[in-house]
Design a protein around this nucleic acid. Structure first.
Lengths: 231, 231
DNA sequence: CCCGTATATTACCCATGGGTAAGAAAAAGT
DNA sequence: ACTTTTTCTTACCCATGGGTAATATACGGG
């Protein structure tokens, strides 16, 4: 993930300097700044002046890139959702039985929750969007939910997961994962990958039918040299 | 806008009728209405006029009972927190080993999440409150978190729970439970108690050291472990 | 160097909604 | 009754902040 130095502005608008970056880069810079501010202070407490100020521009300049505040919010959300859709597609195409796919999904989703764009998926309020965009958000949430339920149901069917109610279990897992977006902070004791792998292990070990010996033994931290993040 | 919800018109201010209820009842009625509206539409989209209108009064009348909008929000939150504090105290005083207490806590907390006052604990944004009230909220959240972690740590210590990281596991459990406040709706297929007991079972069965038979905990020893881990 | 286009700024509009002032209308006290 | 206190209403204030208009500045091509 892009190194965004603390507190500094990665703004393409340097006060008195080359202001000639490509339009898309500026658009993205707006979104990165907006996401950060929305998460820090909450959408309703952040004004467009705040966003603009942090970018060394003025509010009306934002309207060259976006039509409204809620469109900015939506695009922020979309950035995060895009990533989720991508890894869902990748996992779905990949191999493994249902339980293995579920583990991958949990791992990827948990990691996503530790990022700004991931946290925005659960910490933004869809009701701040237009009716049309709310529909899009609802559809996306439904896609995620369906994926979790499908893996659970498939796992029960193929015997890799012990009988459970897919709907309720999906809610339980999603809740655990979404919550990461509320408490995780980069400067904490746990790396994103560490949190994700612990969650993947812990959330599935109660579900696996046979003693989960695929990769991580029941004892968590011995065999996995998962110290610093690879990648 | 729409007509009053047919079943729910607990307003002591009937249009042209007895307006003589006790002050505290009216205060509570304001809070019940406010909680409902805040949950339905979100704090920032609800105006005090909206709240007043649903109570058949006008906005300034609210200021006889509250000093500000954010005080109303805080009192709404406090109603829900009070209940949590009560059952935490009850469970803590009650019997059972750490695992049993954890189950009780999960059950009670899950049920609370299916109520308006419970959902408000996780769906309200503390940043809408004054700095002092934010401190109170943070302290309360910390109390809950400490309770979960304590039961987990005690359980690991007394052998009723298999080794795990109490902090991370507490987050996982709390996340599942808090999420209930986001998806549960009373008119769904599941009763609050049913959801709660399923969660209590499912979230702990992966933790229990011995295969948990339906009711009888594996080892109902007299274990009353040291309680003062830290304070 | 000039002109068209993209981009940014200054200055403004105005709906919204929290909050208040002043006084009417009930309750309660005497 | 009539006075006092509490409760509620009408009418208003005004800071906030999303959004716009008019205009200025930079940029790229001829």
């Amino acid at each position: 993930m892009d190194a965004q130095s603390p507190e500094t502005n990665p703004s393409p608008w340097m006060p008195f300097e080359s202001r000639r970056r490509a339009r898309d880069e500026k658009r993205e810079a707006v979104l990165r700044t907006a996401v950060r501010l929305f998460l820090e202070q909450g959408y309703h407490r952040v004004t467009l002046n705040d966003v603009a100020e942090r970018l060394n521009i003025t509010k009306p300049a934002l309207y060259n890139y976006f039509r409204s505040k809620d469109e900015i919010l939506f695009e922020c959300w979309a950035l995060g959702q895009e990533i989720v859709d991508e890894f869902i597609a990748a996992i779905d195409k990949g191999g493994g039985n249902a339980l293995a796919k579920l583990r991958k999904l949990i791992q990827a989703y948990a990691e996503q929750m530790t990022t700004d764009s991931g946290a925005s998926l659960v910490r933004f309020d869809a009701r701040d969007l237009t009716a049309e965009n709310q529909k899009i958000v609802r559809a996306a949430k439904k896609r995620i939910d369906r994926t979790f339920r499908k893996y659970l149901a498939d796992g029960v069917a193929d015997g890799s997961i012990k009988p459970c109610d897919p709907k309720l279990t999906a809610f339980a897992i999603a809740g655990s994962l979404n919550w990461i977006g509320h408490w995780y902070q980069r400067d904490g004791a746990w790396s994103a990958e560490a949190v994700a792998s612990r969650f993947a292990a812990q959330l599935t070990e109660g579900l696996a039918k046979a003693p989960a010996s695929k990769r991580g033994p029941a004892t968590p931290k011995k065999s996995r040299p998962a110290k610093g993040g690879r990648k």
